[in-house]
């Protein structure tokens, strides 16, 4: 099977089971949304895929186990908090060039850093800036550029807008859609907000208490949810037309 495939993945921490037998596929070129509440195991599943958490079961990329050692890492991850995911002592250019092969010559690196920064709509002249000089939204773009520097086949985006102001989140979401359309990137987009997932993902999977409770095309799942928990999540999305509660 092609793409990033999870087969019966389990992750346990001591007596608790964080991920309990999850099977899920991210086909090439697709954006799959993974939604669920806090503690549902969605972030743990992502960490297992990039080798940050030991697991049992199989996680494969185009039929081969995902490499979690060595320098080539075809599955990359963008973390939730751009304030802690960039080394405060490193210039953003150095951060972005870190995943590039070490054999790459210096000039090639510079050109590639410039290309990637431009791709995420940051001025390449700012490559020497430190993360402290950047806003949250700009930092999250640097984190995206760093993930792309590894030339990944799949990017996992773990709640990448939840630490950002709503006014900035739109720009990051637009960028995600743009990159997906331009580069044909496969992506696992993790969020607790169904409105965001609806906007970027063609497929959606719902996790609850470590298990996958529902999955399918986004429009189907949102229009006709089968699982109770999916309905709860849908009810939790604030709506513009919600009647004011003061008049009850």
């Amino acid at each position: 099977m092609n793409g990033l495939v999870f087969e019966d993945v389990r992750v346990g921490f001591g007596a608790t089971t964080a991920v309990d037998g999850v099977s899920l596929a991210v086909p090439p070129g697709a954006v799959v949304g993974l939604v669920g509440g806090s503690g549902s195991g969605k972030s743990t599943l992502a960490r297992a895929a990039v080798g940050l958490t030991p697991f049992t079961g199989r996680i494969t990329l185009d039929g081969e186990p995902v490499p979690t050692r060595g320098t080539y890492r075809p599955v990359q991850m963008v973390f939730q908090d751009p304030y802690s995911s960039l080394d405060p002592r490193m210039s953003i250019g150095d951060s972005v060039s870190e995943p590039m092969p070490r054999s790459m010559p210096r000039t090639g690196r510079h050109a590639e850093v410039a290309r990637l920064l431009e791709l995420v709509h940051l001025d390449p002249a700012r490559a020497a800036a430190r993360p402290a000089d950047l806003s949250g939204g700009q930092r999250q773009r640097v984190a995206l550029a760093r993930a792309l520097a590894a030339r990944p086949r799949v990017v996992i985006a773990d709640e990448i807008t939840s630490a950002l102001d709503v006014s900035i989140q739109g720009a990051v979401l637009n960028l995600v859609r743009e990159l997906q359309a331009e580069l044909g990137l496969s992506m696992l987009f993790i969020s607790h907000n169904l409105a965001l997932v609806r906007y970027v993902a063609s497929h959606v999977a719902v996790m609850h208490a470590g298990r996958l409770v529902e999955e399918g095309p986004t429009h189907r799942v949102l229009a006709d949810p089968e699982h109770d928990y999916t309905r709860q999540l849908l009810a939790a999305v604030p709506r513009g037309d919600r009647p004011s509660r003061s008049h009850r």
Binding site: R47, V50, G51, L52, G70, T71, Y72, R73, V75, Q76, M77, F79, Q80, D81, S84, S85, L86, D87, S95, E98, P99, A143, R146, A149, A150
Partner: peptide
């Protein structure tokens, strides 16, 4: 997270 990110980057 930046240490995790570096490890994910290989």
């Amino acid at each position: 997270d930046y240490v995790a990110a570096a490890r994910v980057a290989g």
